[in-house]
Nucleic acid binder design. Sequence first.
DNA 1: CGCTAATCTAGAACAAGTTTCAGACTTGAT
DNA 2: ATCAAGTCTGAAACTTGTTCTAGATTAGCG
Lengths: 204, 204
Amino acid sequence: MPAEASTSRTPSPPLTERQEARRRRILHASAQLAGRGGFDAVQMREVAESSQVALGTLYRYFPSKVHLLVATMQDQLERMHGTLRRKPPAGDTAAERVAETLMRAFRALQREPHLADAMVRALTFADRSVSPEVDQVSRQTTAIILDAMGLDDPTPEQLSAVRVIEHTWHSALITWLSGRASIAQVKIDIETVCRLIDLTTPER
Amino acid sequence: MPAEASTSRTPSPPLTERQEARRRRILHASAQLAGRGGFDAVQMREVAESSQVALGTLYRYFPSKVHLLVATMQDQLERMHGTLRRKPPAGDTAAERVAETLMRAFRALQREPHLADAMVRALTFADRSVSPEVDQVSRQTTAIILDAMGLDDPTPEQLSAVRVIEHTWHSALITWLSGRASIAQVKIDIETVCRLIDLTTPER
DNA sequence: CGCTAATCTAGAACAAGTTTCAGACTTGAT
DNA sequence: ATCAAGTCTGAAACTTGTTCTAGATTAGCG
């Protein structure tokens, strides 16, 4: 199993065991603090203390709070992709399966709304310096959606549809997290956008 | 003309002339600083100095940097809605007109990418305390899209489509601003999502 | 005009992200 | 085992958003 699948971006020098452990402690502390309190509760000094690492070291591993939270999201996403793989969605059409998959992910986020807040806010607040990492998250999300569609090599049109679905997914999450949309509303939006798939994938 | 259309939310005590002038100076300084440098360049001390107002006063008018930038966005949006009204889009279908309108708005933003950055980042970073203002921006955007569609009372289905279009609009802007998507890509995404309108609005 | 409450100003103070630095500790190669 | 290079630590310093305070100014009113 590729334990460093997400690291494939930067062929950084392989970490020693203790370094790997530090990295893990940091991500764990980050997720923990985010879990209660959300974005604001993830304070770099606290993350450092909580993971038994000096502040300077924390910054060596993750060059900013946003980097840290985006990495936390990568971590969680991988976990989720694994879970989803184990129980694939059951719908008849691609649109149904994608909608089901996203709603499943949404329910998982609802169980940890503060964590969701921290990760999503970091993701959309990220500036250019975090582009590679954000891109990685985006690729991972795309992979999840394509998995649900059951497609191996999608057409450009289908890729557009997937991108739009991702846009909707992120933005709908934000409106929900900031209390401007209900859970029901997010559900409707997801179902609505998933109809685009039928438009580009003439179901046989 | 309803000069305080956007203020209708909070029936705050009417401002004196000098106060109105201060508010205007602040918004102007904010847009100016945002215009070069984007989100980070809008520093509250600089805004205060630049608009000849004490820091405490700035915070009395806008309780946070995000509030300030969202208000700046409201301001710009109103301007744009006026412009768009004067030259309505010419497409045959609702989908075409909406896409054309959004692309026109997009081109306007391209002329001031830093300003766009500041406003959009503030919008998506806003937490619950800014919900009313963000909601106001959202209503304004909805109004612009419905205008383009040429609809007076849309069906719930059409409203869903409009919401999804807004989601895509915001999120696509973000990917463009952070350099993860090209202008062409944004165009495709907008055109793709606008097809949803045809799905919910059987063109006669 | 003269008073009172509200508003504004200048500036200090505080909070959290980020940077920096000197010294201690690890690691990998010889 | 020893040394050089790289890493980690603890603590202070710096930046920018935000809050607070004491005193000046302004607005509305009798």
